[in-house]
Design a protein around this nucleic acid. Structure first.
Lengths: 188, 188
DNA sequence: GGGTACATGTAATCAGTTACATGATTTA
DNA sequence: TAAATCATGTAACTGATTACATGTACCC
């Protein structure tokens, strides 16, 4: 009986981005970086941002580690296509079955500015809150659009499920900033 | 009439972390990296994580740029103390008055795993959801403790305000993961 | 047929992370 | 007095970002 190897064969560190990309390729079947980019921009990219260049360099790293297989057009645009390998699938499944203990981060520049609201005049805080209201309204509308567009696509079931938390957050954020507009905190 | 200079005098890029640290020093008055660390660990560190080493290197960068002033014990532990300079205050205020257009990121490894839930058996998803429930319960309790502890501290008014959104998020997350436990998505 | 937006990729840099290290203080 | 924990800092590395660059398709 052989031991199952889940570590990549070559010494490549797997970051969260690695598993993200691995998962995207697993979901999509063989794809090009550009296809990944388009998919990301209407899905996980809302929660987890990164520049499109990662979608070229990260699959390359994963291919080095034997977790993806790369093919490349020899002529013309020399497009690359990546597909997941059995080793890649193993690594992904193992990660998916491993509880992660890092807590949620809500990275929001507006919220960060509000944190320091005591350092500026309260009118600035009100302006901030209004701007945030606008941004979250826009975002909420986007999410709602996506939910409608993808409702009938079975392979999007899980992504759409995560979107539900996004929607809930956006509604909470709207209520939050609204309350700031209505009664700004008094620090003194 | 002279032009107001808000750019740092030396060529140092200011990142979000820079403003974060600048703001922390502004809030605290002259402090040491370790004091910053303690403050962070009960406040903004919940939303915006970074290793404590940044609290040594980033003030150094800011001091180079003339935005912080550094003093250092010449004997013993050679503790460093950083204080904000007028230029630092200007830069911070300008940033605080500048609308930021990057949308909120909800960085959550559990949510990312759920995104790929269609790739594993549904029992794994249920387990994931249970684990997340526990984690969010813990986090919610922490937030509630902080809200109580700091309720009477006037200079924490704004930080505590941001915590309200954290609380709302944690409650939404609990409801979300609970709903997953109760009725896991069916992808086929 | 020229402009503009989409598509596709690479190179260089550096902020952020990881890892290491040691001194001081408390506790058992 | 040993051991743990808190306090304080530095060095090295690399993943992520920024910036650049060119090709292709569409539209007016």
């Amino acid at each position: 009986m052989t031991t199952v190897r889940n570590e990549p064969l070559v010494g490549v560190n797997l970051t969260t981005t690695s598993y993200l990309v691995l998962g995207l390729v697993a979901l999509s079947g063989p794809t090009t970086p550009y296809d990944l980019k388009r998919f990301v921009s209407r899905s996980i990219g809302y929660f987890w941002t990164f520049p499109h260049s990662q979608l070229y360099t990260e699959p390359e790293r994963l291919a080095e580690a034997g977790l993806l297989a790369e093919e490349r057009e020899s002529a013309g645009r020399r497009r690359r296509t990546f597909a997941i390998t059995p080793a890649g699938r193993d690594a992904l499944h193992e990660w998916l079955a491993t509880p992660q203990f890092k807590a949620t981060e809500i990275r929001d520049l507006g919220l960060l500015q509000l944190f320091f609201g005591g350092l500026v005049e309260s009118s600035a805080v009100t302006e901030l809150a209004r701007a945030q209201l606008g941004a979250h309204r826009t975002r909420l509308a986007e999410y709602e659009g996506i939910a409608v567009d993808q409702a009938e696509t079975p392979e999007m079931t899980y992504p759409l499920t995560t979107l539900r938390l996004g929607l809930a957050f956006e509604r909470a954020a709207l209520a939050f900033w609204q309350s700031i507009v209505e009664s700004p905190p008094q620090s003194r």
